[in-house]
């Protein structure tokens, strides 16, 4: 069992992340951590190297120039000794106590990847992070769980997911060379990898038993940039999936995937109609559209409350739903238009 932790300029948290890996409830000699210093300009590299002194199962791959997360992970996959590889972000943690559960599903030979449940660690920071906490919970425990019911999770989240190394290695090269409209794709590595695993005929699931934590953007600007990155990667990935999904997983393709693509691109148009066309051209305030969205949100929140009554962020899903309507839905179109801008935006 190997952990891969790509890192660029995360000197504050990288030490914690690495030591956390070694604390997982798993036979110590079977844990291996591969940390990749992807061209950091701060002290991340030194910290990693010093930790290598303490942990003999820690391998540090040190790159002077930044090659990108994908390459860091690919290198980690190549060097990993364990059969199951856990990919972590440099600022994520897996709860050691629940860690074992991520290995459990791999007993089933059909399972190719498992996504852990991730919550924001900095949820209590401000209103924005609380909204994101609600959104993360909904997005994992409800939406990813829904995908998992049919064993086709489309994105094993890069924050904390486990892969079966033997099926990843054959697709590594194709994954690294992923391009869209003639240019390489620097974001959405987790999505792309999950897609390739699905294409190879394996199943991907989500496990709500494995708890991980990550850091979420704390201000609007970073959040917007992150969402734009995510929406761009969603589009690229959707195009890739569309080619094979209807052959290999027809049920999911026609009852979920294609409708999802339709809804994703139709709802900004309907939102535009409700928020601009109706008030400006017809002089009607879109009460009904907004109420419709809040009611649907309420239905989801009812389920949210049912499965996790102790999670206190549920109420913030309402503002998130509105935030989604008024802002994020238009970012989808913006991302579509700016798809050829392959920048990362600042972190």
């Amino acid at each position: 069992m190997s952990f891969i932790v790509p890192c660029k300029n995360e000197e504050k948290v990288i030490a914690n992340t690495i030591s956390n890996c070694f604390q997982a409830e798993y036979p110590k000699e079977k844990i291996e951590v591969i940390a990749v210093n992807d061209g950091s300009t701060d002290r991340s590299g030194e910290i990693m190297k010093s930790m290598a002194q303490k942990h003999k199962n820690l391998t540090v791959i040190d790159w002077e120039n930044n090659r990108g997360k994908k390459h860091a992970m690919a290198e980690g996959f190549r060097r990993a000794r364990g059969e199951i590889v856990v990919q972590l972000d440099s600022d994520s943690f897996i709860d050691p106590a629940t860690f074992r559960k991520i290995v459990e599903p791999f007993q089933n030979p059909k399972i190719g990847a498992v996504s852990a449940h991730t919550d924001p660690k900095n949820a209590d920071r401000n209103f924005l992070t609380k909204m994101q906490a609600a959104y993360y919970f909904m997005s994992f425990r409800v939406l990813k769980a829904a995908e998992s019911t049919f064993l086709t999770v489309f994105c094993c989240s890069g924050c904390a997911s486990a892969y079966r190394k033997s099926i990843v290695l054959p697709v590594l090269d194709e994954w690294l060379e992923e391009s869209f409209l003639g240019h390489p794709v620097p974001w959405g590595d987790d999505r792309a990898l999950t897609s390739r695993i699905l294409k190879a005929g394996y199943r991907t699931i989500y496990s709500n038993k494995v708890k991980a934590e990550t850091i979420v953007p704390e201000n609007l600007r970073q959040l917007a940039k992150q969402q734009i990155r995510w929406k761009k990667s969603w589009l690229v990935n959707a195009v890739y999936n569309a080619r094979f999904i209807w052959k290999s997983h027809p049920f999911v393709a026609f009852t979920y995937f294609f409708p999802l693509v339709g809804v994703t691109y139709l709802s900004p148009i309907m939102a535009g109609r409700a928020l601009f066309y109706l008030p400006i051209v017809k002089g009607v305030f879109p009460y009904y559209h907004v109420i419709g969205i809040l009611l649907l949100a309420a239905l989801f929140i009812a389920y949210y409350r049912f499965v996790a009554p102790e999670n206190k962020y549920w109420i913030y899903f309402f503002p998130w739903a509105l935030f989604n309507l008024f802002i994020l839905s238009f970012l989808t179109i913006y991302a579509l238009m700016r798809i050829n801008d392959r920048g990362w935006g600042t972190r």
């Binding site: 409800v142 829904a146 979920y256 649907l296 239905l299 989801f300």
Partner: peptide, 9 residues
């Protein structure tokens, strides 16, 4: 569609 996701969940 949205409710179908909820039911799947």
């Amino acid at each position: 569609f949205q409710i179908s996701r909820l039911i799947a969940a």
